[in-house]
């Protein structure tokens, strides 16, 4: 029976009603890191706590990857079916700037400073039917226009 499997354990909470990216915060200097680290890159401290990172942030910078990367890239795509994908750093308030894939790949629809949500979705399907789950950044949808 197929199941949903996170791309790696400990990157985000899964399964969870509201999945969240997991970061670590240094108990000495207060600096956060993603993914969870055993020690602090800022102060060399080794006393860190794991916490859930905010689920919404602002786009700090971005690009669109228009050619298919070589391995270790591992998707279900072939060179024929490859679709360009957006990549960006999302600034999570009080946390860190996390790098991730965007759900949007149209440069006309991506701009620095826009709000995005951290969402979790299937990245690829394995031969045994398992769905590999990872995180993406999705533009916060504009409020519906009235009339």
């Amino acid at each position: 029976m197929s199941k949903q499997v996170p791309i790696v354990e400990g990157l985000f909470t899964w399964p969870a009603e509201q999945p969240a990216l997991l970061g670590s915060r240094c108990n000495n200097c207060g600096v956060a890191a993603f993914p969870v680290a055993q020690s602090c890159m800022a102060c060399s401290g080794q006393d860190v706590s794991v916490e859930e990172l905010p689920g919404r942030g602002t786009l700090w910078t971005w690009t669109v990857q228009r050619f298919m990367p070589k391995p270790p890239y591992h998707s279900n795509e072939t060179p024929e079916t490859f679709q360009p994908y957006g990549v960006g750093y999302l600034e999570l308030p009080g946390g860190v700037r996390v790098e991730g894939r965007l759900t949007e790949n149209d440069p006309e629809k991506i701009r620095i400073g826009m709000e995005m949500d951290v969402v979790f979705d299937t990245w690829r399907t394995e031969d045994n039917g398992d769905e590999i789950i990872t995180f993406f950044f999705r533009p916060v949808s504009e409020p519906a226009q009235e009339g």
Binding site: V8, Q65, P69, P72, Y73, H74, V87, Y89, R101
Partner: peptide, 18 residues
């Protein structure tokens, strides 16, 4: 982690572009 390369983030070209 290996996941970083698997999802297509291990690219120097992306860094320079961003």
């Amino acid at each position: 982690g290996q996941w970083y390369g698997e999802v297509g983030l291990m690219m120097t070209t992306q860094f320079f572009a961003m």
